[in-house]
């Protein structure tokens, strides 16, 4: 796996994207109306590791999130899950869908 530092800085870790406190408990996935199709903890782990290809490979999954915050309301670590997903969308829009100007 290659750590993509440009990808890490695009996420503005600790600012717009904050998942460092994730304890990988899976409460988010257990509660998600979409079930196991969406696994924020997996996406966030890839992102924290700077694994750009693994994150961008999940583009469709990232756009299937409802942003309903049911996971977030129950997250024991208080992660801003919906805002993190939104941040990943901005990166996917730019790097996968070519919508940088949008």
């Amino acid at each position: 796996m290659k750590v993509d530092t440009e990808f890490l800085s695009a996420l503005k870790l600790g600012g717009e994207f904050d998942a460092r406190m994730c304890i990988n408990c899976g409460t988010c996935t257990a509660l998600c109306p979409l079930g196991v199709e969406l696994m924020p903890r997996r996406l966030f782990r890839y992102a924290l590791l700077g694994n750009r290809d693994a994150v961008l490979g999940e583009a469709e999954t990232i756009f299937s999130c409802l942003l309903c915050r049911l996971c977030e309301a129950n997250c024991p670590a208080g992660i801003h899950i919906a805002e993190n997903v939104r941040t990943l969308r901005t990166v996917v829009n730019r790097d996968v869908y070519g919508l940088a100007e949008a």
Binding site: P33, L34, S64, L66
Partner: peptide
Amino acid sequence: GKLTFCCGGPLESLFPGKSAEIASR
């Protein structure tokens, strides 16, 4: 209340099938 379940609306444009499944639930 705070633990409400989504209506599926946010997916109606990109994933209409999944949106309808969640709405039905």
